[in-house]
Simulated assay, not measured.
Amino acid sequence: MSGKVVRRAYKYRFYPTPEQAEQLSQTFGCVRYVYNRALAERTRAWTQEQRRITHAETDRMLTGWKRDPDTGWLAEPSKGPLQAALRNLQSAFDKFWRKQNRYPKFKKKGKTRDSATYFRGCFTFRDGKLKLAKQSEPLDIRWSRPLPDGADPSQVNVSRDAAGRWFVSLLIESEVAPYAPTDAAVGLDVGITTLVTLSTGEKITNPKHEKKDRAKLAKAQRNMARKQKGSNNRAKARLKVAKVYARIADRRRDHLHKLTSRIVRENQTIVIEDLTVRNMVKNRSLARAISDASWLELRSMLEYKADWYGREVIAIDRWYPSSKTCSNCGHLLQSLPLNVREWVCAECGTVHDRDVNAARTILAAGLAVSACGDGVRPPRS
């Protein structure tokens, strides 16, 4: 069976030399400056002239900034990352105009992850060694997993997270063999105490990675708060906070990858709810727990892995009363408080576990959508 050609990013950690670290830090600063200045120009043009500046215009502006004696240092790093910054800004505006995202924000130094994107012509990859433009030595990469045979990266992204770790991501087109077809289908009900409840009756406990490290995180944050702003000691304390956050994020991502890979491997059809997590985290009582569960990342992984391996993901309407509908006879309750975890159907007498019943009802609704598109609105995509 022939596979599907997909674009996959292979991410690795690397350890730059002092010279490489200095050069990359300079590149990050230039990327940030170009992005922010282009954003300021586009904002000014709209607020003062009601005119949209195009990507081509910002590209010409970049050429002028390089020739300006005051910003001539923009010509020192490779031109690729600077042009990529303008492309990213254009993409951010496209999403804003389509009402998929908020208005683009300015990038702040040291507050978020620094990154630079290199396209073809701005790097070389030969014999398993990656060398970036304007650097004399290849990067010291830890190849934690092998690249596909004959890998030819079309794009390289270099980044440094808030914890000071360096990463390189290689975008590669590769063939992915689909899984063997199966008749299995599953409905998923996400939660906080139980991360995922399957329609088979299985419950996946939420590891609550943030909660496990909450005491360590709070201690690091208190220590940082006592340091004087702008001091070296505060910078060191901020790094410790970032390392705790990085540990939490790494463990969460690893768990979600293992869980979603297993679900996609075992089931042909996967049915989920089209939840509006952005609105749900406005609940101050549940925002922290919902963010730690990372439902959006779970759904994203399910969708792209299903696309790779020949599976189907169906998202049913977020307002579908899955918990209140009897999965046996279809009887709908008038109300079902959150503290009620088990209930008995008044019509057929079936005793339901709230979460398992919801997962089975979600599966039934999703299969109905797959068959005839009845009763459920389309997913967000």
Rank of each mutant, 00 (worst) to 15 (best):
L296P: 04
L296I: 10
E297W: 06
E297Y: 11
E297A: 11
L298A: 05
L298W: 13
L298Q: 11
R299M: 10
S300T: 15
S300G: 13
M301K: 08
L302H: 13
L302D: 13
L302C: 09
E303K: 11
E303T: 13
E303H: 10
E303Q: 14
E303G: 11
Y304I: 10
Y304M: 09
Y304K: 11
Y304P: 13
K305R: 15
K305F: 09
K305D: 13
K305T: 12
A306T: 14
A306P: 03
A306Q: 05
A306L: 08
A306I: 08
D307S: 10
D307I: 08
W308I: 07
Y309I: 03
Y309V: 04
Y309C: 03
Y309M: 06
Y309P: 12
Y309K: 05
G310Y: 12
G310M: 10
G310F: 13
R311T: 13
R311W: 10
R311Q: 12
E312H: 14
E312P: 04
V313I: 12
V313H: 06
I314H: 09
I316P: 05
I316A: 07
I316Q: 08
I316K: 05
D317F: 06
D317M: 05
D317T: 00
R318V: 05
R318C: 09
R318K: 14
R318H: 07
R318L: 08
W319L: 08
W319A: 06
W319V: 04
W319G: 01
Y320N: 00
Y320L: 11
P321L: 07
S322T: 02
S323N: 02
S323F: 04
S323Q: 07
K324I: 01
K324D: 02
K324G: 00
K324E: 00
K324L: 00
K324Q: 05
T325D: 03
C326V: 03
C326G: 10
S327Y: 12
S327L: 03
N328A: 15
C329G: 02
C329E: 05
C329K: 09
C329T: 08
G330S: 04
G330P: 00
H331G: 05
H331D: 09
L332P: 01
L332N: 09
L332K: 15
L333T: 05
L333V: 05
L333W: 04
L333Y: 07
Q334N: 14
Q334H: 14
Q334L: 06
S335Y: 09
S335L: 03
L336P: 06
P337N: 09
P337L: 09
N339L: 11
N339R: 14
V340P: 00
V340M: 05
R341V: 00
R341P: 03
R341Q: 07
E342M: 00
E342Q: 10
W343M: 03
W343P: 00
W343H: 00
V344A: 12
V344G: 06
V344T: 15
V344L: 13
